[in-house]
Amino acid sequence: MRREGSPFSGLGAVTTKELADHLSSARMRVLEWLIVLTAVAALIGTIQQVRDTVSEDPFVFLKLFTEARQPLPSFVSILAFLIPLMAIGLGFDAVNGEHNRRTLSRVLSQPIYRDALLMGKFLAGLITLAISLVVLWLLVIGLGLLLLGVPPSTEEVLRSFAFLVVALAYAGLWLAAAILFSIVFRSPATAALTTLGLWLFLTVLWPALSPGIAYAISPPHPLYQLLNQPDPDTLVWEQGLARLSPSTLFGEVLRAVLNPATRAIGPIFLEQLEGALIGSPLPLAQSLLIAWPQLVSLIAGTIVLFVVGYVVFQRQEVRA
């Protein structure tokens, strides 16, 4: 049975309203300040460190993103940690909040499909995240300009922009996950806890677990153990398992995008390095190609999670 009318009618209204909600909500303000303060603290330390190292580096601006100065982690590590937090914060009560406020049926009795409602909520979350990330990006560039006194090169701007896109994809993934759980669980607290638990598991526990699991699935050949060398098969398993975690994927993409000298992610054979001019930067397109599978996984994961949430939402009854 084919229904008439556009599933997108009302999308703009929903997006605008949700966006306004996000941008004015106290929750967002807390998250934004948290991110901005930690990021600025990390940045200022990093900038001092970068200024102290006099050596000529054609990618000094990218260093601002990746360099860490004790005791603070680098700017990107902070973002890798806080982006999911922010995305989950935006999405965990997206749908169950409407249920609990009993506003869902009234909104849906307006001439819109619920497609528009869900998409609008996702879009608004994504736009909020994009705004926050762009602000942070400008903050890095601005502080860099102010304190380093050199303009970034086109390559650096493009690379940092690519970082922005990747960070958005990563944020989108966690947003989609949070929205999915907000559809599945009626209680926002349950949804938030589940998503945060999943995030902590995948970010903290999983990277520690995956070597053990890889060891169990594909025990290293005794020869390699004798040589005290890692077995390539085990390594492949280990890496494959670790990549189930979006944070691993995100870290890998960043390594390729923000460090132009990165030639490969993961273990490589020594013979692959023969004749290679180590340290020579790769063109951006090649760097992106290295990180492409990871980037694709992030984007496709976002879409798949959204679709799962979408299907579940569509099959739900409007009333509680």
Partner: peptide, 29 residues
Amino acid sequence: STYWGIAGAGIIGVALLIMVGAIARFGRR
């Protein structure tokens, strides 16, 4: 090789197709 790049874009395309399919199948409620 950009084959993998194209393959990756293909995967995203498939994901989008799934989304379009989901909208066609479950959409408009």
